[in-house]
Write a protein that binds this DNA or RNA. Structure first.
Lengths: 242, 242
DNA sequence: ATTATCTATAGATCTATAGATAATGC
DNA sequence: ATTATCTATAGATCTATAGATAATGC
């Protein structure tokens, strides 16, 4: 501990002068504004104004808005890949599945602007698009690895083909859940999406693998799943007539 | 036939003067440009320029861009609801499932700009948002009805709970498939999404219900599904290293 | 000397409207 | 008379840069 205290101050050059560098503040404010209002509705002017700095200053730290987004995506990616790891020293347990999902959904929440405008972001920044594709492939293979682990642990009874399909379906449901909520479930204008509502996504992902649960674990897993069944108010409403 | 020929000219007042009214041309051009470039990248100026009319003229026919989108959504909705109907005079057959999917995916393709920017469109137009939510509920109940029909026909072995979950998962995969393709699968900048690539979505949707197929129909349905397995080039690529 | 920040501004759009003019339908 | 169309333009942004000024680190 003492050693760290001595070493830390000199390890970086920015951390001394101010608690938080302007660059960091820009990233942080951008993330917040993007999440709240959507990337499309937030200009570099807005970000600068929100921070009480000049637009020129912002452009000193970032070449343009894309550069900010690129940096934020890096944070997001790092966080997700950190979560999606299969422990090497033990078998997977039912709770692991839950932890993966909770971690990932938390990440999705904290960077929720990303998937909202993902297509536009990627199509207008080839470099980001390339990174994202690689990120997807890595995630896909990690998720497959997790499903294989659940198979080895005797929780799921799946073939390799099932695993491939399950992994892809999981990816799509997870990354689309937010968009789904915002488009279809906000029952009136005022209602906003809470992290809790988001957890309904966990329930939904569980439904994908339910048919593959082994006899032995079916009850445990279903019980786990039920905890996340929000069936929020929206499901009570009868479908609207055409 | 003779009767129709006599009646048609007087049935509407626009169809006489010109083959296509300016209003129609605006809708058509907007759809095309939105699909090709994304709604976000197409301004009312672009639309007017593309049609060789003045911006003023466009605003004479539509209050603003939202009004154009609103009209286009109406077309899309009508088309989808037209497809999602369970025949009352007979049991569902395996091919029905395929027809539903093909019809819906064709609709998604023809209006592909919609789901690309859906969140923004809905959040900036409360009236459209309300319509869309109602549309979702109707679709959801129709899709459940289809699954029930497949159950009655002995093709699926499902509980009511399974049906609810299957319907929602189907909705999400179907409506997100495009976004998924554009974000993750376009392997280089030049490659563009073809209607064929889209059909891979049909395969993916089939995977959702595979575990619920009855012994009797499993082989037939799996054979059907295989026709749509594109496993396009992208799956051949090994996952990128981190 | 280098790094950080500000002011001011050019240039490019976009949306939406006002007001004039042409075309059409009785 | 009514409907359709055009020209021209106001007003609001936004992005990105140039150039001046302040702060910091040796």
């Amino acid at each position: 501990m003492a050693i760290m205290a001595v070493m830390k101050p000199s390890s970086t050059k920015d951390t001394n002068s101010k608690a938080v560098s302007t660059r960091e503040r820009i990233l942080c404010a951008s993330l917040q504004l993007f999440n709240e209002q959507g990337e499309r509705n937030v200009s570099t002017n807005h970000i600068a104004a929100h921070l009480d700095i000049s637009p020129g200053n912002l452009y000193y730290h970032f070449k343009n808005k894309q550069a900010i987004i690129y940096a934020l995506f890096g944070q997001y990616q790092k966080r997700v890949l950190n979560i999606l790891q299969v422990p090497e020293d033990r078998q997977l347990q039912p709770m692991d599945k839950l932890n993966y999902l909770q971690g990932v959904f938390k990440g999705l929440w904290d960077f929720r602007f990303l998937h909202r405008d993902m297509e536009h972001l990627l199509l207008s920044d080839p470099q980001l698009h390339g990174h994202y594709r690689a990120f997807f492939r890595t995630c896909e293979s990690r998720v497959r690895e997790i499903f294989r682990g659940l198979g080895r642990a005797g929780i799921l009874d799946v073939t390799e083909e099932d695993i491939i399909d399950l992994a892809l379906n999981t990816w799509i449901i997870v990354t689309s859940w937010f968009s789904f909520l915002r488009c279809n479930l906000l029952s009136d204008e005022s209602q906003t999406i809470s992290p809790e509502l988001l957890q309904g996504g966990i329930y939904q992902v569980f439904t994908l693998e339910r048919p593959y649960l082994t006899e032995e674990y079916r009850d445990v897993m279903c019980e786990l799943q039920q905890r996340y069944m929000p069936r929020p108010s929206w499901l009570a409403n009868p479908p609207a007539a055409e």
